[in-house]
């Protein structure tokens, strides 16, 4: 990933969340897309919550040549085709919101 001005070198962890109705191939499709873009999956979790299929992935995008904006656009597009909502956020927002 082309790092932001103040990004520190090394790992830049991002959280991908996928929310929608469960169906076959969600994990495979997203993982495959990430693999093709040089994005490494560090952790993966899934569960059904409030009636939604929820999957989160922690990924490291430091080896990706694409900008975060491009990565996000493409992931949203992949999500649309499967009728699920895909979003990607830098880990810091979760740390700020959920840890004191």
């Amino acid at each position: 990933m082309k790092s932001a001005k103040n990004a520190k070198k090394g790992k830049e962890l991002l959280f991908i969340s996928v929310i929608g109705k469960d169906k076959k191939g969600i994990v495979a499709t997203i993982s495959n897309h990430l693999y093709k873009n040089g994005i490494n999956i560090e952790d993966i979790n899934q569960k059904v919550m409030e009636g939604y299929f929820v999957m989160t992935m922690v990924v490291d995008a430091k080896d990706s040549k694409k900008s975060l904006e491009k990565i996000r656009e493409e992931l949203e597009e992949v999500g649309k085709k499967m009728n699920v909502m895909v979003s990607i956020r830098h880990e810091n927002i979760f740390k700020m919101m959920h840890r004191i």
């Binding site: 969340s17 929310i19 899934q46 569960k47 939604y52 929820v54 989160t56 956020r89 959920h98």
Partner: peptide
Amino acid sequence: MTISLEEVYETSSMFLH
């Protein structure tokens, strides 16, 4: 530090829903 799936879902759904 690990962020749980529930926490990621809570944040995402604040923005999405």
